[in-house]
Every structure is written in C-alpha cells, then in structure tokens.
C-alpha cells in the first residue's frame, strides 16, 4: 500500500507537471497553446523544498522528543503511568484486546491520547512514537502492522482533540468575537471520525486481504 501511494504521488506529479508544460488554455477564440517549462521547474523546486522540510521537521522534533520521553521515563519508573493505565483499563482492553493490560504500551497509548485530547500536539507525537515502539515489542512479524498498531494509528489520524488550540489562535488573530465558538462542532466532528476509525479498523482487520502473512512475503 505504501509502495503504491509513494509511486502514485510521484508519477502523477511528474505527469501532470509535464502536461501543464503544454500550457493549454481555453479562450474565446478557442484553444490556444502556451508552452513553458515553468510547471516542471516548480515541481523540482517543490520536491527539493519538501526534502529539506522533512529533515527540519525531524530536527525540530529532537528536543521535544527527548523532553517528553525523558518525562515519560520518570513517570514510568515512579509508577504514575501504571496508575493511569489501571484507571483506563476497562476502555483500553476493549480497544486493544491483543495487548496485555499491564504492558507498557498501554501506558504510552493512554498518555498519547490524553495529550491529543488536551491539544498538546508536540507532546502527542513523542508519546505516540513511544507507544509504537512498545507495540512493536509484542509484534511477531516485524515488518507488518498489528491490529493494535492500526487501531492506535487510526485513533491518532482521526484526531481526538477537545481543544483545537491552533485554529482557535488563528481565529483570535483574525479578530473573531468568540474564537472558541467552533469547539462544539469540532468535538462532534472529531467524535464521528474517531468512532468511524475504530469501527473501520475493527471490521477491516478481519478481511482476508488484510491478514498477516509471514515475513518476506507480500
């Protein structure tokens, strides 16, 4: 799947940019051609700047990753995470039946979801990556995602925020009389997408085409 997406985005990008170089335009006088290499140049610039942004993003993550995983370790060693995991246990064992209730993965996933709910985006990613590392320890086929990983991922990509801090900030800057009045709709919409995410992963994981195969095969 990842291979198809990677190839598809790049190939479509090059083809569309190439086609745009012909510069077809509809005018009153009919179709005219206005050839130029500009679209291909823009494509190249876009590709190079994306590669640079990717590394900048990762570099920007280093400090914040170190901070949150450092705090996470203290919370683990002191038993705070385990306490939290115990409180959330009834919900978590239903969402992730394949993960042992006392496994560190549970604690990391709870922390990640809590950070998302509070709108702490820069804490959520490090904690989410920590959860993936823990889930990988339970994985028998190391190059293939487990059911728990996919469910956790889908919850994350569907966004579980209660406080959309960024967008409230933008609206405040634009002079909204009540920048936070979108919170209700946001919580509703996010609730719908998270519910769909959980149901979809639970149903799809049973489909024959998504069964886990041995390492090396496709």
């Amino acid at each position: 799947m990842i291979n198809v997406i990677f190839m598809g985005l790049l190939v479509i990008g090059v083809v569309v940019a190439g086609f745009n170089c012909i510069g077809l335009e509809m005018t009153d006088a009919g179709m005219i051609m206005n050839p130029s290499f500009e679209p291909l140049n823009q494509l190249t610039t876009g590709i190079f700047s994306s590669a640079k942004v990717a590394v900048e993003l990762a570099m920007g993550l280093i400090g914040i990753m170190a901070l949150w995983l450092g705090l996470m370790r203290i919370a683990e060693d002191s038993g705070l995470i385990q306490l939290l995991a115990k409180a959330m246990r009834p919900l978590m064992v239903r969402l992730f039946p394949d993960v042992p209730p006392d496994h560190p993965a549970m604690g990391a996933m709870i922390m990640n979801i809590a950070a998302n709910i509070l709108g702490l985006g820069n804490a959520a990613t490090p904690l989410g990556l920590k959860a993936m590392t823990e889930l990988q320890k339970l994985n028998k086929v190391k190059d293939t995602a487990t059911n728990a990983m996919v469910t956790f991922m889908a919850i994350n990509t569907s966004s579980v925020t209660l406080i959309p801090a960024t967008v409230i900030g933008i609206r405040a800057a634009a002079g909204a009389t009540n920048p936070a009045d979108i919170i209700g709709p946001v919580i509703l919409a996010t609730g719908v997408s998270t519910t769909v995410a959980i149901i979809a992963t639970k149903l799809m994981q049973k489909l024959p085409r998504y069964q886990i195969t041995e390492e090396g095969s496709n």
Binding site: M1, I2, L129, T133, D143, T157, S158, S193, A200
Partner: peptide, 26 residues
Amino acid sequence: AVYFGSISITKSRHAVPAALLADLAG
C-alpha cells in the same frame, strides 16, 4: 509515515484505508 517509519513497518495492512475513511467521515 512517522509512526510506522519509526519502527520500520512497511506492511501497513488496513491502516491507510481505515484512516482515509475516518478522514472522509470527519
């Protein structure tokens, strides 16, 4: 990309379709 990449998962199974379905619903 980041979550699966961090643990070198290349076979994402139903992750992409499920996530996109959730996006559509959202």
